[in-house]
């Protein structure tokens, strides 16, 4: 039988390739990695690089064409008071949405991780996955329907006679407005709605990883349930919260469709990027605006990594 001799040699190209990869396992890894690395390296990193490059170009005020020369003029423009307001507004909104998402996500995640049985858990999981994956635009559209003048919110408010309550909320300075659909409150609610599911899953995952025996040990050592929660559960769930916040923060910061459809006329970074690259054709300023979330996220990721949030991703 063939197998009993060592000298037998197959020499089909396939088996020669097997031999080659066996002798040089590194080569196989290299061949596997080459296509994805080329794709992401050239198309994605390359594009990011041209974005950065563009932010150091400027627009010629007279011709409206891009001047391909190195300048910091665009960045100076970025930091002008009006533009700086846009940046500040966006970051504040991202913070608010992230905080609110963490607050709403925690009970859901906590319940699913701690009290749900196997069947309920699957239901919770789907209950988060379906809204997470379902169409972004449809979700926004749903809120357009909800917040519309003849929509469900006004119908409920009028039906329950809570008009004065809504009006007093809307009369608040800055965050109020003529109606929910054109106020910061509206923008906030929709952004929260759209990005909330991204917070729930990592928080739940980090809660699932806490062994029950740890909580029993804490109780055994004399901690009241509230103390166990504060001293054991919360610190251990924190990496999950931070991991989730990476998504809610980043995605809120870059969103330009939500504030465009639900909100006041005051711009967010995403809208600025979109407007400048579009009709104005000012790609350099759009690029400079886009660099802001990148820088913010790099700082954010640096601190998140320090807190061990990457293990919770």
């Amino acid at each position: 039988m063939n197998s009993t001799t060592l000298t037998v040699r197959h020499s089909s190209p396939g088996s020669r390739l097997t031999d080659l990869f066996w002798k040089k396992p590194g080569l196989l890894i290299f061949c596997l990695l080459l296509p994805p690395l080329l794709w992401l390296g050239i198309i994605y990193i390359g594009s990011l690089f041209t974005l950065l490059l563009h932010s150091f170009f400027s627009i010629d005020e007279f011709s409206g064409l891009i001047r391909y020369e190195f300048t910091l003029k665009t960045y100076a423009e970025l930091l002008s008071p009006a533009n700086f307001d846009v940046i500040l507004r966006t970051i504040l909104m991202a913070c608010a949405v992230t905080l609110a998402a963490a607050l709403i996500a925690f009970p859901i995640a906590y319940y699913a991780a701690r009290y749900a049985n196997q069947k309920m858990k699957a239901l919770f999981y789907l209950g988060v996955m379906l809204p997470l994956w379902s169409s972004y635009l449809v979700k926004i559209y749903a809120w357009k329907l909800i917040l519309a003048k003849q929509g469900i919110v006004n119908w409920v408010v009028e039906g329950t006679g809570a008009t004065f309550l809504l009006n007093s909320v809307l009369s608040l300075p800055v965050i109020g407005g003529n109606s929910l659909a054109v106020s910061y409150i509206g923008t906030f609610i929709v952004l929260l709605y759209v990005w909330l599911p991204f917070m729930i899953l990592p928080v739940q995952a980090s809660l699932e990883r806490i062994p029950e025996s740890l909580l029993e040990a804490s109780g055994d050592l004399g901690a009241a349930p509230k103390q166990t929660f504060r001293l054991v559960i919360l610190p251990l769930a924190l990496p999950g919260v931070i991991a989730g916040s990476i998504f809610t923060f980043s995605l809120t910061m870059g969103d330009f469709i939500v504030p465009q459809i639900i909100g006041s006329s005051r711009r967010f970074i995403g809208q600025a990027v979109y407007a400048h690259q579009g009709t104005a054709g000012n790609i350099p300023l759009a690029a400079a605006f886009a660099v802001v979330p990148i820088v913010v996220m790099i700082i954010y990721l640096y601190f998140a990594k320090k807190r061990g949030a990457f293990d919770a991703l």
């Binding site: 994605y44 563009h54 870059g254 990027v273 759009a286 979330p293 990148i294």
Partner: peptide, 19 residues
């Protein structure tokens, strides 16, 4: 590409196509 906001990917590709 999904951790950074989509607008970054979008405007990056847009500027690459432009160049």
């Amino acid at each position: 590409p999904i951790a950074l906001p989509g607008i970054i990917t979008g405007i990056s590709l847009r500027s690459a196509y432009n160049i």
